[in-house]
């Protein structure tokens, strides 16, 4: 897969808070990310790290309690954080599309699948309804449905979870977007269906030359899908690296612990999994120091007193004093 250098989405210093005053929850803190054209960027992290918030904030779909305190997200010469709702609406689906976690709750149970697919074409009044229907059936066959006509006429409750997710993907690619954001698309699916859906996404990515932002908590899925991997913890980016570099030479202690905590199928059998002690930090309190400090087993004296930022060495960034020291 050839990757062109210029980024289509550039996130700079993005910070998002929920609530006000003392009850402020810092969901995202100073996020800096780039997504290049035709690249798949994977975001890994556990619940509460802010990955879903990041996805929703790019699409400006956060609830009213969320405040965009600072930061920019440059897409196609527009700052998404500072643009009008009208402009945002023209960007959603046409330029940036999203696939959500639970397909059953994202489809309208009262409407047929075909009609829901055609909703994406509403902003193109010049297309006749016959053309739109043809497009919809073509989309359904692109997502590997054997009988697209039958699916076109079905209702969501008649389809299984995997099939619904494929319909969601069809809806997302209907306007040929430049960027596809997938927020844990296979978490709710069976493992065999997961494999099919992931292969489909990869294929579509190469056919449409889309960039993809893939969010998950499952590192093995990232291994299959992504070119670069970003690990998030407590609302911050803690590591960014190329996939191979990430798994061969993991720098941040949290990423290492995450990999070690996964039980593996083919590797050596463990008698005890390496668990991470403690719990994720409270997002209400801000601290300049490393947020993983209380749970880290590789601390050095600098960790207790010095603030830490993202340290970039050879395109492999890590928010850790150890990589700063070159350890």
């Amino acid at each position: 897969m050839t990757i062109v250098e210029e980024p289509i989405l550039r996130i700079e210093k993005l910070s998002i808070n929920y609530g006000k005053n003392e009850k402020k929850v810092h969901a995202l803190r100073n996020i800096n990310l780039n997504i290049r054209k035709s690249e798949c960027l994977g975001i890994a992290g556990e619940s509460g790290c802010g990955k879903s918030t990041l996805a929703m904030s790019i699409m400006k779909l956060l609830p009213k309690t969320a405040h965009y305190s600072e930061g920019h997200a440059f897409f196609d010469n527009t700052d998404l954080m500072n643009c009008t709702e009208k402009k945002m609406r023209s960007i959603r689906l046409n330029k940036i599309a999203m696939v959500f976690q639970n397909p059953m709750s994202c489809l309208n149970p009262f409407k047929r699948i075909g009609k829901q697919l055609e909703e994406g074409f509403l902003h193109q009044p010049q297309m006749s309804s016959v053309d739109v229907k043809k497009e919809a059936i073509k989309l359904l066959s692109q997502v590997k449905f054997d009988e697209p006509n039958r699916i076109y006429k079905s209702y969501p409750h008649e389809l299984s979870g995997g099939m619904c997710q494929r319909v969601m993907i069809a809806m997302a690619i209907s306007q040929k977007p430049d960027l596809l954001i997938a927020d844990e698309p296979t978490t709710a699916l069976d493992v065999t269906t997961q494999k099919d859906v992931l292969e489909l996404l990869n294929e579509l990515r190469s056919v449409f030359k889309m960039s993809m932002l893939f969010i998950t908590h499952d590192l093995s899925v990232l291994n299959k899908m992504c070119d670069r991997i970003v690990v998030m913890y407590a609302g911050e980016v803690v590591e960014i690296a190329n996939k191979n570099k990430f798994f061969k030479n993991t720098k941040h202690p949290y990423s290492k612990s995450l990999i070690e905590a996964c039980p593996s199928l083919k590797g050596p059998k463990e008698s005890l999994l390496k668990a991470i002690p403690g719990t994720p930090p409270d997002l209400k309190s801000l601290s300049e120091l490393c947020s993983f400090l209380p749970r880290c087993d590789k601390k050095i004296p600098q960790c207790e007193n010095r603030a830490i930022g993202l340290v970039n060495k050879n395109n492999h960034s890590s928010r850790c004093h150890l990589s700063e020291e070159g350890i």
Binding site: V191, K195, L219, S220, V221, N223, K224, K243, N244, F247, K248, I259, S264, L265, K266, G267
Partner: peptide
Amino acid sequence: VSCMESDTF
């Protein structure tokens, strides 16, 4: 399951 675990992982 295993197709997702490669040697690098």
